[in-house]
């Protein structure tokens, strides 16, 4: 098992702890449950605070960050949290792992150029939409930057079959007449199935189908070799910038 070792200073809190991948996944879940409501999935929702780039303004060490998580910051909106030393440490380890993973593309792209690629060369709108513009055949990406991080988005662009979120799986139905339709599964119940394909939303009675089931492969093409490294970075930067529709 790959072990992520972070040299944590010799404080009583986190003295030289090695965090396993599982610990970091726990830290990720704790972050989602405890921190993300205010800080956002990317750690940058609070103005002037960016948690996922390995630099912290108010703490020089990892156990200092863990102490802030536990005790809060008096006089600010940051409350104390009832977490053990290990739990707080695993959150810090998670934040460090994100910072270590990043760097391949994030921060190097240009959002405006990425938007142009999304709407032009990349032809992303053939399947995807952003803020009510584009196709609904694929997932709506209006808030993709709030739920996916840059490395994950880069992986999805280069290897679309590598990880498909459950809500984005492709479904295939065959009617009694032999017509085959594939699309994104929206919903199913005891009697019916709803898909989204190029024709729009479609509904089928299960009783009228010969077969139905998920398709393992994503309909999304890989952009490996189709975009330059800079274009890829631009596109990822644009996607990361999509945080949903902001209220005024």
């Amino acid at each position: 098992m790959k072990v992520w070792t972070f040299a944590l200073s010799a404080g009583v809190l986190l003295a030289q702890h090695s965090f396993t991948r599982a610990d970091i996944e726990d830290g990720s879940r704790l972050y989602s449950n405890t921190c993300a409501a205010c800080h956002g999935a990317n750690g940058d929702r609070v103005s002037g605070v960016d948690l996922m780039h390995g630099r912290f303004r108010r703490a020089a060490t990892d156990d200092g960050v863990a102490a802030i998580i536990q005790k809060g910051i008096p006089g600010t909106a940051m409350p104390p949290h009832a977490l053990t030393d290990f739990q707080a440490g695993s959150i810090v380890a998670y934040l460090r792992s994100v910072a270590a993973e990043a760097g391949s593309v994030s921060g190097t792209g240009d959002v405006a150029r990425g938007k142009a690629i999304f709407e032009g060369k990349g032809a992303c709108q053939t399947c995807h939409s952003v803020r009510n513009s584009g196709s609904l055949v694929g997932p709506d990406l209006t808030d993709i930057g709030a739920i996916r991080r840059a490395p994950q988005l880069e992986r999805s662009l280069l290897d679309p079959d590598g990880e498909i979120l459950a809500q984005n799986r492709t479904y295939r139905v065959v009617t009694r007449e032999g017509t085959v339709i594939t699309g994104r599964l929206l919903n199913h119940d005891v009697f019916t199935i709803q898909l989204m394909d190029a024709q729009g939303p479609r509904s089928f009675q299960k009783a009228n189908l010969k077969e139905s089931g998920f398709v393992e492969k994503s309909p999304m093409p890989s952009y490996q070799g189709k975009l330059s490294a800079q274009e890829l970075a631009d596109l990822v930067s644009y996607l990361v910038s999509l945080k949903g529709i902001q209220t005024q």
Binding site: N33, A82, T84, A166, Q167, L186
Partner: peptide, 29 residues
């Protein structure tokens, strides 16, 4: 994972990973 009791706070441990949503979704997949 370790867990510590603080009155009035949740005292559970790490929430398990479930195959089916605890709350239910507006769409079922």
């Amino acid at each position: 994972s370790p867990v510590e009791y603080v009155e009035g706070r949740q005292y559970t441990g790490t929430f398990p990973r479930m195959t089916v949503s605890f709350r239910g979704n507006i769409q079922n997949q």
